[in-house]
Amino acid sequence: MIEFKVTGDYIPMIQLLKAVNLVQTGGEAQIVVTEGEVMYNGHIDYRKRLKVKKGDTVEFRGETIRVI
């Protein structure tokens, strides 16, 4: 499990995937989100601009990110 400490109220989903090095670029992050490869709090979510907040979990390619 990856723990990511968010500064501020939230981090956009695309930036989160880049920040934890699960994707190389923002473009790649947009593609994997729109293709339904990312789960947000247990559900597939297609929103590229989703605001991920403290307490949320994101699952992608076998990795779980817990936002703290």
Rank of each mutant, 00 (worst) to 15 (best):
D56N: 08
L16M: 10
R47H: 08
I44W: 04
I31T: 07
T7M: 09
V23F: 07
E35R: 12
T34C: 05
R49K: 12
L50G: 05
T34W: 04
E35H: 08
G27T: 09
M13L: 15
L22I: 07
R61S: 13
V20T: 10
Q24E: 15
T7L: 10
G26I: 06
Q30T: 13
G36T: 00
R61T: 06
V52D: 01
K48H: 02
T57H: 06
L22S: 07
K48Y: 04
T57A: 10
L17T: 03
N41C: 08
Y46Q: 03
V32N: 05
E37A: 13
D56C: 04
Y40I: 15
G55N: 09
M39N: 12
R66D: 00
E37C: 10
I44V: 15
Q15E: 10
G36Y: 00
V32Y: 01
R66P: 00
A29Q: 03
D9P: 06
G27C: 12
R61G: 11
K18M: 09
D45I: 12
N41P: 08
F60I: 06
T64L: 14
Q15G: 11
K18L: 08
L22T: 03
T25N: 11
Q24L: 13
Y46M: 06
K5D: 04
A19D: 10
E63D: 13
K53I: 09
V6D: 03
F60H: 05
E3K: 14
K54L: 06
V6K: 12
Y40C: 14
L50H: 11
L22D: 07
